[in-house]
């Protein structure tokens, strides 16, 4: 697996997401830089609360107030989308960027048939007649593996099992042929036995459609099997980002090293570390310097005063002073 070399489909530059509160501003996502190439799968991992979902929500323009993008830019095919009006951004959602959320079981409106929901999505974005949209919807349902799609299209969400509903959700995300899908823990709410099926379905469809995916998960096994590159998030920042093979087998950031130590399946050639001690800091108590420093086994003086940005580290990029060497920290 190698990093695709084409011009990026999505580019996130110095993204910061804040929540103004009565006790001051909380910075939940800080200085995120990442790119996704056309057709590429970028895995995003990190503990709960690391800022993965907020990053995804910021990209599709669905941060819930008072949350807001406080700094940075988001570019899709070179066009800025973070400063679009609600109506302009609405046209991007579904059409250019699809989304799959954390709980697929509750993503469908219980009062409408799945067909109606797919058809309305298609007709919102594409210039087709209702019967063309219906044909397309049936084709999509076939594609995601719903048996007897011509009949099932008129059924309601509650008539489908969890796994089947997730397939419907995937068909909805793909309905208007977006070039990027943001899948936020698409299988967390599902039965373990179905998770692998759904992930491989998602992977297969996106490959066939040439759709890029930002796959948020805390399952490193899924990342290892699915992603081209992976971004490891910690405390609202990217700790390490790089080709999936390098990040898994030769992690450069002490946090990633710890994470990898906790995956049983890929443990053989990775230096085994005990579970990382401690917990991620709360948003109102992020330590000075490197946010990981209270838990880091390699911490040294500079870590407590200066915050490291992403810098080249082996085959990946990591935000860790261990890799500073003589170089200045580079943004990127």
């Amino acid at each position: 697996m190698s990093t695709p070399q084409s011009a990026p489909l999505l580019e996130v530059r110095h993204l910061r997401v804040e929540f103004p509160t009565r006790r001051g501003v909380l910075t939940a996502v800080d200085d995120i830089n990442l790119t996704i190439a056309p057709g590429e799968v970028l895995g995003v991992v990190g503990e709960s609360g690391a800022g993965k979902s907020l990053t995804g929500a910021a990209i599709i323009g669905l941060l819930e107030p008072p949350g807001r993008i406080a700094a940075g830019e988001i570019l899709l095919n070179g066009r800025r989308i973070d400063n679009l009006s609600y109506e302009e951004m609405r046209k991007v959602r579904g059409r250019e960027i699809g989304a799959i959320f954390q709980d697929p079981l509750t993503s469908l409106n219980p009062l409408y048939s799945i067909g109606r929901q797919i058809i309305e999505t298609i007709m919102t974005h594409l210039p087709v007649t209702e019967s063309e949209a219906r044909d397309r919807a049936i084709a999509l349902l076939n594609e995601v593996g719903i048996p007897a799609a011509e009949k099932r299209i008129d059924h309601y969400p509650h008539q489908f099992s969890g796994g089947m509903r997730q397939r419907v959700v995937i068909s909805l995300a793909l309905a208007a042929q977006p070039k990027l899908i943001i899948a936020d823990e698409p299988t967390t709410a599902l039965d373990v036995s179905i998770q692998a099926q759904i992930i491989s379905l998602l992977k297969k469809l996106c490959r066939e459609h040439g759709t890029a995916v930002m796959l948020v998960t805390h399952d490193m096994g899924v990342i290892a099997e699915t992603a081209d590159r992976v971004a490891v998030m910690y405390s609202g920042r990217i700790a390490e980002i790089g080709p999936v093979h390098d990040v898994i087998h030769n992690p450069q950031h002490p946090y990633t090293v710890g994470l990898m130590g906790s995956i049983p399946s890929i443990g053989q050639d990775v230096e085994r570390l005990p579970q990382i001690e401690g917990a991620m800091p709360r948003l109102n108590a992020i330590p000075q310097g490197c946010a990981f420093n209270p838990r880091c086994t390699k911490v040294f003086d500079r870590c407590r005063t200066e915050r490291p940005d992403l810098m080249d580290a082996g085959a990946t990029r990591a935000s860790c002073w261990l890799h500073a060497k003589n170089k200045e920290a580079v943004h990127g």
Binding site: R93, A99, S107, L111, E120, A176
Partner: peptide, 26 residues
């Protein structure tokens, strides 16, 4: 606040459809 309304927005449905088609009916 429900997930299906968030998902309806993420599908790019118009506000009118989200508010009156999906939310009001529920």
């Amino acid at each position: 606040r429900t997930d299906y309304i968030k998902f309806a927005r993420a599908r790019g449905l118009t506000n009118r459809s989200v508010h009156f088609g999906h939310a009001l009916k529920n």
